[in-house]
Each structure stands twice: as C-alpha cells, then as structure tokens.
Amino acid sequence: MAEWFLQVQMKFILRITEWFQKMQAEFTLNFIAKDRWRLLLTGLGNTLLISLFAVLIGILIAVVVALVRSSWDTTNERLRPGFGKSVFSFFDRLCRLYITVIRGTPTVIQLMIMYYVIMTSTKNGVLVAIISFGINSGAYVAEIIRGGIMSIEKGQMEAGRSLGLNYTKTMWYIIAPQVLKAILPALANEFIVLLKETSISGYVAVMDLTYAGNRIRGATYSAFMPLIAVAIIYLVVVVGLTKLVGILERRLRQSDGR
C-alpha cells in the first residue's frame, strides 16, 4: 500500500519536473534565443509611442471640435443670420460629419485607408499609425469633452461673463479646469482603450507589441509563450495606468475641499 503511494508520488514529481523543463526550454526558445525579447521590447516601445502621441493629437483635435460643437449648440439660436452664422454652421456640420464617420467605421479600416490610400508616399508605419489613431481618438475624446462642457452649470459661464471676463478668459479660467476635472477619468479610460486598440498596427506592418509576439510565434511555432507574454505585458501596463488614474482622481477630489 505504502509502496503504491510512493510510486504515484514519484510519477507526479516526475511529471512536474518534466513540465518545468519543457517550459524552461520554451522560454529560452521564445525569448532568450536570438535575443527575441528585444522584439517584445521594441514592440512595447512602439505601442506606447503610438498611443501617447495619438492621444495627444486626439486631444488637440477634440478640443477644437468640442468647442465648435458646444458653442454652436449653446449660441446658434441667439446668433443673427448672416455670413458669420453660415460659416459657423458649416464648421459645426463638418465636426459632426467627422465624428459620425470615425465612429461609424472600424478603426482597422481607417488605419488601412490611411496607409494604403492617403499616406502612400511614406513607409513610416509608426507615423501613419500615430496620425490615424490620433484622428480616430479625436472623435471619441471630442464627445467626452463636449459632454464635460455641457455638464458644467450654465451659471458658471454667466458668473464669469457678468464679472467682465470675456468668453475666452471665462472658458480658460473657469470652465476648462472644471471640465478637465470632470472628464479626467474618461480621458484616462480612452487612453487605455486606445492602447489596446493599437494592437491592430500590424496591419500596416508596424512592429507593435502584438505584432512582435506574432513574429516570435511565426519563428518558433509555439503559441503559448509569446501570446501569454504579450497579454501579460498589456495587462501590467493597463493595471499600472489604472492605478495612476485612481491616485490622480483622489488628488483632484481633495483639491476642491471635498
């Protein structure tokens, strides 16, 4: 009886050792051999680069679009008809069209159109990805900012204006800080979504994190190691960012005496 038990135990230990050895070999093959980990590092670098600059471009576009959209929404009834109003109306429609098109088509198609149709002269995929994701993110961020502006009580703008501050100053000193505070969580969330969305950059031959994992998979014919590694790296970055946002939010809340 005791002998049988020992045998089972031995077999079990053997199995585990075997598994570890296999994993070790896999690990070496996928990451150590031929310095393949460098691929992942380059990939992660590109992923972060694309996400960061895309979100910056996105915010730039979004601020303009959101200002046009929200100031049109709040003032169009009061404007006198004329050339100025027509121009304003035209820009508002343009912004709406932009948001509709971007939100109504798959990101990967936008990326491919940018690479194969619009920016055909450049083979710098990273640049194309930054611009394409920037334009894409702009549409979503614009709606976030517009929602933020609309969520600020009308009395705030009126209080600023009634003190003699002009529209720009009131926007800058009174509305914008409150909007920023209100939308920061949503903005950070948008960045996280964008970061994961850049995983389609491989479609235009950009060596992002996902593409790097795929390259390793293609070379070593093993799926588990490279794919799990890529997933873990994304996860760590996203969880880290989420933590940062949490800290930021708490700071902001404390800053107005809540």
Binding site: G155, E158, S162, L163, S255
Partner: peptide, 20 residues
C-alpha cells in the same frame, strides 16, 4: 460689453461661485 459688465456686477439666485 465686457468693460461695462465689469462695472455692473450681478449676484445670482444660485450664487454661482466657482467650485474649483
């Protein structure tokens, strides 16, 4: 109008202080 408004200030029913 901004120059004029700076000289006729308004107090609102809802106070409208700047919360931030």
């Amino acid at each position: 109008i901004n120059r004029i408004r700076a000289r006729m200030c308004m107090v609102f029913q809802q106070f409208n202080l700047f919360p931030h």
